[in-house]
Design a protein around this nucleic acid. Sequence first.
DNA 1: TAATTGTATATATAGAGGTTATACAATTCA
DNA 2: TGAATTGTATAACCTCTATATATACAATTA
Lengths: 124, 124
Amino acid sequence: MNINISNANGEPIYLQIANQIKTLILEGKLKEGDALPSMRILATELRISFMTTKRAYEELERDGFIESYTGRGSFVKAQNLEIYREEQLKRIESLLVEASDTAQKAGITMQELHELLDLVNGGE
Amino acid sequence: MNINISNANGEPIYLQIANQIKTLILEGKLKEGDALPSMRILATELRISFMTTKRAYEELERDGFIESYTGRGSFVKAQNLEIYREEQLKRIESLLVEASDTAQKAGITMQELHELLDLVNGGE
DNA sequence: TAATTGTATATATAGAGGTTATACAATTCA
DNA sequence: TGAATTGTATAACCTCTATATATACAATTA
């Protein structure tokens, strides 16, 4: 496991860890059943408290990416991409609701909103 | 000026004040040149520190809705609706960028994004 | 049974946000 | 001109939240 953390970064350590592991899983570099390093070992490698690695793993567990068992370790779960997709859709929906509300108050039309959406998508 | 504040509400007092005045201006109930109550008078009415009303007025000033002059008072500015619109467009753009990025990572297509946008707009 | 793994509870620490107090400066107006 | 009124500036206080940690406990492994 190649995890890199930076103090300079404003992002909290536990999120840096969780996000990097999440990416490895989504990219298929970590697969169902794969064992993650134990919380204590990873913490020692990164020279941080193992409670911080625990926090990272909790985050991943909460999001359905891994499972942990006392005495055994932590393992990558079968990825339910459909559930992940649904969760992201919910997040996107709330963003769009806010955008839509703001637009309405400012007299910005739906057509403009759609055009803007195409515009920001093109720019990547 | 009929301003209502609530402690029960999680929204900070200075924002409650600023938003209510902002709405009055956008609805045309307060017009260019109209005098706002002095910070101290409004604070006394609302039984809060006048630094909190000042904070509210600063917010409104920052957003271009009012102007304040030492010794004279605070007044509604000529509304530049075009500037307001541009600012809201910027806010909307950043929301759409985030939505678009999230969609891309989750394999959600632009078409779905557009459909979702229509959907959330219809529901109001 | 010793070592390893995850869990639970409590604590410290820092930082941000919101509200307030107090002293200062400019304008008004009697 | 001088008192009253208005906005400004700086600092302090309080609360809440988030981050990271320490330490004791429980389950599994080998």
